[in-house]
Lab assay of single mutants.
Amino acid sequence: HNLTITQGKLFFHYNPKLCLSEIHKMEEVSGTKGRQERNDIALKTNGDQASCENELLKFSYIRTSFDKILLRWEPYWPPDFRDLLGFMLFYKEAPYQNVTEFDGQDACGSNSWTVVDIDPPLRSNDPKSQNHPGWLMRGLKPWTQYAIFVKTLVTFSDERRTYGAKSDIIYVQTDATNPSVPLDPISVSNSSSQIILKWKPPSDPNGNITHYLVFWERQAEDSELFELDYCLKGLKLPSRTWSPPFESEDSQKHNQSEYEDSAGECCSCPKTDSQILKELEESSFRKTFEDYLHNVVFVPRKTSSGTGAEDPRPSRKRRSLGDVGNVTVAVPTVAAFPNTSSTSVPTSPEEHRPFEKVVNKESLVISGLRHFTGYRIELQACNQDTPEERCSVAAYVSARTMPEAKADDIVGPVTHEIFENNVVHLMWQEPKEPNGLIVLYEVSYRRYGDEELHLCVSRKHFALERGCRLRGLSPGNYSVRIRATSLAGNGSWTEPTYFYVTDYLDVPSNIA
């Protein structure tokens, strides 16, 4: 807008934040220059609390790290170098490059900038070799853009010569660093050979998330399962459950009422301010606690030095998902009996873990797994792929695949051998790939016309006998059925096997 004052003059007093240069501009645009008398524009009460600059400061050096910015700028000295009290560095987070010096300023003089007072450097006698002032900004957020400017702080001049310097606002972004852990990993099994893994992005990506790394490792069953005799009275049979499938998407929606109208769909109840505040506090606490764990609990591995020492970490090797089922080394339970199943799973520490690289999504279907087997899954978020990966501390989750139908069934015939004193040795093959492992066998036998009897055969007993022995049988026709019990439950009964026990007292003698 054009402003013209045809008559009258300007009068400025007691404006401590208004620089004289701005008042002189007002004289020019209003056409009143030359009308004012000496005392109409006070030299001592206008701009006496402001830094009124008329020179431009330029930054000469900028260096960044993930949490620091090192700045240096060209030296500046007023005509009387004693008038320079120091520099004021202003900075704040700036997602967009549209910041002005006066953003967030209120009537009390406060604003949204963080201000650092910096002492002037030592003055050199040689004007050509003056030290460049600077400042190291610490405690910054990774991968965050900051708006920065600097200006001088000078003393009051009796001659009211307006001098000083100020830089333009520059924008500097800190470097990326390792992201925080992925949030809320959930693993479920939808079949006997697959596990579905879902997660949420890290709360602090500290860069642009480029991919996720998912490692999985087959877990050995508890050692007590191999040692305890679950045929003993009072000892509860062990059981394991597989990871249940995901709930429906509708039930997972946030901010939804727990109660549904019987007449149909209901609208979600909005969260109160107290609920939102509580969630923010919980989120802040979780982030602080995660940072504490990362800094205190997890110790970084030592990389190899120039002395030739090897990095103890196993090298990563990509495998196809079809090879995942046989990740671990199978060892027989008892070496003397080769027909026992290889369900003991000690994992070799030198073995390469299978892994998958996930790009542009937060889910993965891990296939080719062994049925009813526990897996430990390790999830890392990465925001750099080359020249070397920059990934987060791992988040861990466990899951067990679903049982395989008929995996616990005894394959092959049940054979028998009759000894003296009416002892019958029953023999059968253990299931080759049971659900988890076989903890015991149930032997059901009966003599024709009598009630059915049951015998429990422990895992250890089966390994020693290759089956079991029935003792003290009365003469007669017998039928026997056997079924295995694994961590997933009972298998199917075998087809009945028949044998006849004679009275050993009636056996004919070869003595003449």
Rank of each mutant, 00 (worst) to 15 (best):
V439R: 07
D323V: 06
A407W: 10
C267F: 14
R447Y: 15
E433K: 15
N208M: 10
F246Q: 12
H254K: 13
N255Y: 04
W493C: 01
D503R: 09
E290K: 12
L505P: 08
D408A: 02
T373R: 03
R376S: 10
R319N: 03
T415P: 02
K302F: 14
Y500Q: 05
R313C: 15
R319I: 12
S262Y: 12
P338E: 08
D385E: 09
L455C: 12
Y375N: 00
E290F: 15
C266Y: 06
S304L: 06
E404R: 11
R469F: 13
P300Q: 05
P312G: 14
E417S: 08
S243M: 13
A263L: 11
C456E: 01
P332S: 04
S342K: 10
V397G: 13
P312F: 04
E356I: 07
R459P: 04
V214T: 06
E247L: 11
Q380N: 14
R390T: 05
T343H: 09
G412F: 10
T497Q: 10
G234H: 11
P300T: 10
P434T: 03
E282N: 01
D385T: 01
T347H: 04
R471L: 05
P332L: 08
P314V: 03
E430S: 14
L470M: 08
S458F: 04
Q380W: 08
D503W: 13
D261R: 07
E281R: 13
Y448E: 15
E495M: 01
W216F: 12
L379T: 03
K357M: 08
T373I: 09
D503Y: 08
N383F: 02
S486A: 07
C269D: 02
A405P: 05
G264S: 04
A405E: 13
S342E: 10
D229P: 12
T303C: 11
S474M: 11
E362P: 12
L505G: 09
N206T: 13
A336G: 06
H454F: 01
K460N: 12
L487E: 09
S268K: 14
S243H: 10
C468Q: 03
N326T: 03
S304Y: 08
P238N: 11
V439Y: 14
L369K: 00
Y292S: 11
T494E: 01
N295G: 06
H211T: 05
S243P: 10
T485K: 10
R218I: 05
S251W: 00
R400L: 04
D311S: 13
F246I: 07
P245G: 15
S341C: 08
E227G: 12
S223C: 13
P270A: 09
S392Q: 01
L280I: 10
E260G: 04
Q380H: 08
P205K: 15
D408V: 02
D222L: 11
R459H: 13
V358A: 03
C269E: 08
P332D: 07
V424G: 03
A220T: 15
C266R: 10
L426M: 04
H425E: 12
S486D: 01
E265F: 10
T494G: 00
P475L: 05
R370Q: 08
E217P: 12
Q256N: 06
N206D: 02
V359T: 08
S444P: 00
E279R: 10
E224T: 06
L455A: 09
E389P: 09
E378S: 14
S392A: 01
L505R: 04
S492M: 07
E281N: 08
E281L: 05
K302A: 11
K317F: 11
L321Q: 15
M427D: 03
V365A: 06
V345P: 10
P238H: 03
P205D: 00
H425R: 05
K460T: 13
A394T: 10
E430L: 08
V457P: 00
S284W: 12
E217K: 05
R318N: 06
K236T: 07
S474G: 11
P338K: 08
F419L: 10
L455N: 06
L437A: 10
S304R: 03
P346T: 15
N421V: 10
Q380I: 13
T210V: 05
E260P: 11
E249R: 08
F289G: 09
F355M: 12
W428L: 00
K271H: 07
A399N: 07
S348T: 05
K233M: 14
V297F: 12
S492L: 13
D503A: 13
E389I: 02
D204A: 09
T347I: 13
S344N: 14
R471W: 07
V365E: 10
Q275S: 10
T210I: 09
E351K: 14
P238I: 15
M427Y: 06
E282W: 14
G467D: 01
R313W: 03
Y445W: 07
V296K: 09
L228S: 05
W216G: 14
K278W: 10
L487P: 09
G472V: 11
V345R: 10
V443W: 00
L237V: 14
D503M: 10
I482D: 01
N490M: 07
G207R: 01
Y396L: 09
L369R: 02
M402L: 07
A381W: 00
F355C: 07
P338C: 09
A395I: 12
A309V: 11
L455G: 10
T303V: 05
S492C: 15
E420F: 02
K278V: 15
F285Q: 05
N255Q: 04
A220E: 13
D222P: 07
S367H: 06
V393G: 02
E356H: 10
P245H: 11
K236I: 08
Y230H: 02
A395L: 09
G491L: 01
A463C: 08
D311N: 13
S479A: 14
Y498K: 15
N510I: 15
P346V: 14
N339M: 06
W242I: 04
V214Q: 00
E389V: 12
P238F: 10
